[in-house]
Design a protein around this nucleic acid. Sequence first.
DNA 1: GACTGGCACTCGTTTCAACTGAGTGCCAAG
DNA 2: CTTGGCACTCAGTTGAAACGAGTGCCAGTC
Lengths: 340, 340
Amino acid sequence: MLDDRKLDVLRAIVEDYVATHEPVGSKTLVDRHNLGVSPATVRNDMAALEEEGYITQPHTSAGRIPTDAGYRLFVDKLSTVKTLSPAEKKAITSFLAGAVDLDDVVRRTVRLLAQITRQVAIVQYPSLNRSSVRHIEVVTMTPRRLLLVLITSTGRVEQRIVEQTNDVDEQLIADLRSRLNTALSGQRLTEATTSLAAVTDLFAPADRPLVAAIVTTLLETFTDEVGEQRIAVGGAANLTRYGDDFERNVKPVLEALEEHVILLKLLGEATNPQTLTVRIGHENPFEELATTSVVATGYGSKSEALATLGIVGPTHMDYPSTMGAVRAVARYVSQILADT
Amino acid sequence: MLDDRKLDVLRAIVEDYVATHEPVGSKTLVDRHNLGVSPATVRNDMAALEEEGYITQPHTSAGRIPTDAGYRLFVDKLSTVKTLSPAEKKAITSFLAGAVDLDDVVRRTVRLLAQITRQVAIVQYPSLNRSSVRHIEVVTMTPRRLLLVLITSTGRVEQRIVEQTNDVDEQLIADLRSRLNTALSGQRLTEATTSLAAVTDLFAPADRPLVAAIVTTLLETFTDEVGEQRIAVGGAANLTRYGDDFERNVKPVLEALEEHVILLKLLGEATNPQTLTVRIGHENPFEELATTSVVATGYGSKSEALATLGIVGPTHMDYPSTMGAVRAVARYVSQILADT
DNA sequence: GACTGGCACTCGTTTCAACTGAGTGCCAAG
DNA sequence: CTTGGCACTCAGTTGAAACGAGTGCCAGTC
């Protein structure tokens, strides 16, 4: 079927096309890569590759371009993930080191990823799923208005306002605050949800309405956030490098970037930082993004991913470099988060 | 100079060009708007308007398009800000009403603004400048690691981590927490900066190092945030409606959107919600955005603006509607924030 | 004096045919 | 199996001609 040389030809076609964005013909291919055979031979190989569905011709008198299947084979078998240079690695650490809080880590990561891959970068905020309660604070803003602040082990801070019809007793609040913290501190959010129910019972019936209101809001915060995931996006300006065919290549991506739900689906399930997910062209679940590829991976801890980050770009991207960059950034962010 | 009819002609030209995005000639102008005169007369008026610099011809055998000066005159003298329909107003309130915290208000606002203006929307987070301290919380995460949480009157929550080399005394922290709050609660951040200095002196010399570390971090938080302003952006997909000339119209805007510092300059000084700032084409401070206009206004309270919001779009936008939408959204957001 | 119809003129756009050339498939020879 | 040769295909380019939207100007009219 496909002997080694045919695979070499495919590799050469992919690399050439990624570099030039122009259909590549047999002659130029032989000129640029030293394949050691004549154009005619390459033509035969090309015919075979086309037969197998790895490359295609935009029109009869043009060169070949890789199909999604061609890129897939290239990524799986014909290339190795490129590692970053020491200088780049150093740049990453120093860029991420200056972050002051979790939000800042995410913002910096997205910016960094966009910059080194020159693609659109997407970073999902660490999910609350796997994180645990570090501290719960109840603050009286006015006698009838309370602010709940939930601080998680990943450094995320969630806030909710609770309104009351009667003035609340400051002593009760202090009591509640300490009980909540003893009951929930250190627990996973999913576990905390069950523990919360028991807390109400600790209070005198007269105080129950207030306690119940707060418990309910807290419960919402836990579960809401488990479902709704936040996302940061950056590097949209890189879309300008997509070349022409604006309507087909740029517009759908720009639209997708606004819809965070779509982005979450694109990123897919969080995998651990060892595994890179590459979705090429039509492999992704959106028809409009058929000319777009996604490179993503999880980040968090070695064994268990907190969330996903990745990039979105044209199918004709430089996969080895991009994959290397995504993997490297994910690892460094995991490290930073582990330290915090 | 410019009698009423010439101004009518200018108005017609602007409206037509905004609708069609094509140079408008004397004949079509007479056809579409009932000016009550012949094309020849309109041509004379056009010649006068061109002489004055309000319109121009892309090339000899084409119609006229408004210059920046033409749009300026149109906005200042020839149009009135369009008010929203009751249905639209209702949509705005119901869309903003569901917000759970300040971040959510800002995210919703940006989305809303992008949707109704069909332009790129920019919303600056309420600045800390004018806001005051509502509560300061000091939480021990581990014996040597503290988390500071600052809650402001605008509902903004800032967090900072403080590391210590020795274990900290829980009692001291409680003491510090209460003193900080009594000393600073209700104060403007700018005032609080001065009050902070006095707090250290209240403690025994042995405790000073810890207190000083916390005070310093708090000080940084106050002043950092006064300078660095956060921004939310939305509706970038609307850029696809810019038509062709991608390189000139879309790319610079997309690049500017990444640079929040640039956006802040574009939005300009916060004005109160009564005043709309319109910057047309070259009037804005960036050469690359010469084909772009900005419509912005302040929001917060009636008398004093907390921050700015607005939209960025092509110079040939529908100013009356856009201005109306920006103004309306600013007012509703102000209202929501006042309630919180 | 302001408006209007008529007319010559300009110049970007469209149309169409001819040309060019990169690239292919196939075949016969090495 | 590889290779040089060759006829063929077809998107893109080029150039000339036709087109037409729009203009400025002028002489006549109200």
